[in-house]
Design a protein around this nucleic acid. Structure first.
Length: 798
RNA sequence: GCCGGAGUGGCGGAAUUGGUAUACGCGCACGACUCAAAAUCGUGUCUCGCAAGGGAUGUGGGUUCAAGUCCCACCUCCGGCACCA
């Protein structure tokens, strides 16, 4: 028998599978379905490194396994190709983004095909294809129609390097997530999506999802729900009041001043009552000049200015209290105004100390001489509420002053427009007469025009604004002269619904066929990086819920189960990056060791969701294992069809059980180790039952599809091993006839012995006590306790 | 500061959920085959000890016949949020 030649075998079978269209998705809806999805890649110019395929290998194994266990599986792949990286790559390399993307996709696809994935390429999608983004635009129109897309002129985050506005989700702290530049606040017209209307549902529905706790927690933090109250503070001698949001209405009696954010809009009439207008204006101007970091970097050092001449009235005790403007209060959260309770809030305490404001304790339990006490407790100095508990007082005091209970969220509306070329055009027309007019659905897609220069203008207009022939159009309503919206959608738009497109990839009359959607949705298993926790995974859930509300989809959540891939770190412990020159290319690993070895190694490295450093030395272990499997074939005993060797049969059933359970649980490392143990055991035999070997090959097939297919053919099968049924294990056969019992004396293992698995306690006790090593420890001593754990151990206390 | 996750040999990591800690793999050492090397196969490989035994799962306590696993206190690392009232 010739040696294991991975190059020959892998090429042969990849060709064969594609010729036979082995991985075409079946539309037979009688079977149970399983939708297995990868987060589709961004086809960058750098190509794949060995970290990229890790998740794809896992879904490949999982989907092959699901198919073999009888499911109808949908396992597609596509390209998320709009957005800044593609555009920047194109600018840098002086090439049209469309062409650059085409080239990159071709390269990615070639690299992926070497690894032997079972994608159904007939369902390949590309977010930059007009036939695709027509539906992205359609969703925007629907959002607009229902009031979930609106124009805003609020200051937003502007990245001076990327020269575009950004959403909150695109920042890391106050730095652009993509290029690391500090962002500025810039007022500009922009399209915003009302994701905040979905905050409560996005939060609540996390409960029912089989997602990693860490990702759910990130989303909870991001949504940032807090319960509190809205309370109005009247202004002395005016008809106005200032409303504040607080989570601690129980401390209302301790509110000794109010603070407004510098951006807070005071009415002119009220401002007229302020006696130190110049000072206030100067302070507000000063704050505006500061960048976001300067404001926060100053940290706890509080600044502010009092609005002299006007006073607020604490509605709980009718005392007059001063009003300040200070930049430690954020304009966009709550009402942009707070009641300050220095005795029970650290920030207010620091401010009060600096400005010499009174600190009134209203909750007992702390020492307000030393600092703010932020815990709960019994109310004091709170009039009729003295003696009640803070939890109960919250609602009572709110009602008492005529406030209302209110829930707020940190989540901000999604800034949805980008001043860049390479994105979906927003399907809106601006007409002087009719104002903002949505493009009629029948006119979709609004295609992205070819352009001479797609470099950003930096003026807050996208490069599209320069193409007069595209910009100038007629109003769909009045047929008068009108201009197209020149902002484009953010990178996250296309990826917020792509999983629905795979279900019905060529539909041009509806986003997705209702029947098909009903069958395939939701995604049963979704695999990708944890870095998408508070972006893609929130946006997609938002859009999905919206599509649910308008009746496009039948299920409220897009991704039922989610697994996240741990990163593959470079051998030097750093991130794999061209910059560090530590990138390992999967093509090279495939050439040297083969795709099956690469697949096995990546799954064997460690727990799937944990990041692990690549180790070139260790790859050989996976290859050796495959070599063993290959050589094992020579020892097959051909004639018989049942397994007579009881020990091997039991081992096989144990292995089937372990591998099946581990694939379900995404524990590929231990699945592989149990197969290694199986091979190590079987290797000791001079003759191997044929059935045993072929059953084992089926177990290995999802992990190493090429070598198993070749061996399968050598065993004389005509049909592909990947169409075989997954073997069933017999629970009774997974149990051995004998058990090894460990004997502990005072908690220490002193000896072990073999006993038949159905032996009763008396028998075990007799055997255990008769052991010489046990007698040595028990001689002349009283046995205080004897514990028997069935088929495991006995524990003797003397 | 709040929340979530983790800490086990030289290295990557196992441990049926309270039941023989270190499976599986890498590396290393020795041996076989070979003129030699590679590959392959075999043996060994937590630690102290000649042995009998003792000690080890970040640290210190506790519960239990029995703790990597449960409880309390602490240390370190990773991730999310953060002047969010």
């Amino acid at each position: 028998m010739k040696g294991y030649d991975h190059k020959l075998i892998e090429k042969k079978w990849q060709k064969e599978w594609s010729k036979k269209n082995l991985y075409k998705t079946s539309e037979n809806t009688d079977k149970l379905k399983c939708y297995v999805l990868d987060m589709f890649p961004y086809p960058s110019g750098e190509g794949l490194h060995v970290g990229h395929p890790k998740g794809y290998i896992a879904t490949d194994i999982y989907s092959r396994y699901k198919k073999m266990t009888g499911y109808n599986v949908l396992h597609p792949m596509g390209w998320d190709a709009f957005g800044l990286p593609a555009e920047n790559f194109a600018i840098k390399n002086k090439i049209q983004p469309r062409i650059a993307v085409e080239q990159n996709i071709k390269h990615f696809k070639e690299q992926l095909s070497l690894i032997g994935f079972n994608y159904d390429w007939e369902r390949e999608i590309n977010t930059t294809d007009p036939a695709y983004y027509r539906w992205t635009q359609w969703i925007f129109l629907k959002l607009h129609e229902r009031g979930f897309a609106y124009e805003s002129h609020e200051p937003i985050n502007w990245c001076p390097t990327c020269q575009t506005g950004l959403a909150n989700e695109d920042l890391e702290g106050n730095v652009c997530e993509r290029c690391g530049t500090v962002v500025e606040k810039r007022p500009m017209r922009q399209w915003v999506l009302k994701i905040t209307d979905y905050a409560e549902r996005l939060l609540k529905d996390l409960e029912g999802l089989e997602w990693p706790e860490s990702i759910k927690e990130s989303q909870r933090n991001w949504i940032g729900r807090s319960e509190g109250a809205l309370i109005k503070f009247p202004i002395s001698n005016f008809q106005f009041s200032i409303e504040v949001f607080t989570t601690r209405p129980d401390t209302l009696f301790g509110a000794t001043y109010l603070v407004l954010a510098p951006e807070h809009q005071l009415t002119q009439e009220l401002f007229a009552g302020v006696t130190n207008q110049e000072e206030v204006k100067k302070y507000i101007e000063g704050v505006k000049k500061k960048t976001e970091i300067e404001r926060t970097a100053e940290g706890k050092e509080k600044t502010g200015v009092e609005l002299r001449g006007i006073k607020a009235i604490n509605p709980a005790n009718n005392k007059e209290i001063p009003i300040f403007i200070a930049d430690y209060v954020l304009a966009h959260y709550g009402t942009g105004a707070i009641m300050a309770v220095p005795a029970h809030d650290e920030r207010d305490f620091a401010f009060a100390k600096k400005f010499g404001l009174p600190v009134v304790e209203v909750i007992s339990g702390g020492d307000i001489q030393k600092g703010a006490y932020t815990g709960g407790g019994i109310l004091v100095h709170s009039g009729q509420f003295d003696g009640s508990k803070s939890e109960e007082a919250k609602k009572a005091i709110t009602l008492f002053v005529g406030g209302e209970m209110k829930t707020t969220y940190k989540l901000r509306d999604w800034v949805f427009s980008r001043q860049r070329y390479w994105g979906e055009p927003i399907p809106i027309i601006h007409c002087e007469k009719c104002g903002v007019v949505p493009v009629p659905e029948s006119d979709l897609p609004v295609t992205l025009p070819e352009v001479e220069s797609y470099e950003p203008t930096g003026t807050g207009e996208s490069p599209l604004a320069d193409i007069a022939s595209w910009v100038n159009t007629t109003c769909p309503k009045c047929s008068g002269e009108a201009k197209r919206e020149t902002n484009t959608m953010p990178q996250w738009a296309g990826s917020s619904w792509y999983y629905l497109r795979y279900i019905d990839p060529h539909n041009d009359t509806a986003l997705v066929d209702k029947e098909k959607e009903k069958y395939w949705s939701p995604v049963d298993m979704y695999v990708g990086g944890a870095e998408h926790a508070t972006r893609h995974l929130i946006y997609a859930r938002f859009w999905h819920k919206f599509l649910y509300d308008i009746g496009t989809v039948h299920y409220e959540e897009p991704f039922k189960r989610l697994q996240h891939v741990g990163l593959v770190i470079a051998e030097d412990g750093r991130k794999m990056s061209k910059r560090y020159g530590n990138v390992v290319n999967p093509d090279d690993v495939v050439a040297t060791y083969g795709a099956d070895t690469l697949r096995l190694y990546e799954m064997f490295m460690g727990p799937f969701d944990q990041s692990v450093a690549w180790n070139t030395e260790s790859i050989i272990g996976a290859r050796r294992f495959l070599e063993k499997v290959w050589r094992l074939k020579e020892r097959i005993k051909n004639e018989e069809s049942t397994i007579e060797n009881k020990k091997l049969e039991s081992l096989l059933h144990k292995t089937i059980k372990k591998v099946s359970e581990d694939i379900e649980g995404f524990k590929f490392n231990t699945a592989i180790s149990s197969m290694m143990m199986f091979v190590n055991e079987v290797e000791k035999e001079s003759e191997i039952p044929r059935t045993l070997y072929s059953t084992f090959l089926i177990l290995l097939a999802p992990f190493a599809p090429h070598i198993t297919e070749e061996l399968w053919e050598m065993l004389g099968h005509d049909m592909s091993i990947h169409l075989e049924k997954w073997p069933q294990y017999d629970e009774s056969k997974t149990r051995s006839d004998t058990a090894t019992i460990a004997v502990q004396i005072n908690g220490k293992v002193r000896d072990t012995f073999e006993i038949s698995a159905d032996a009763d306690e008396d028998e075990v006790k007799t055997r255990a006590l008769s052991l010489e090593s046990v007698r040595k420890w028990t001689e002349g001593k009283e046995i205080k306790k004897f514990i028997y754990v069935k088929n495991k151990l006995v524990s003797i206390v003397v």
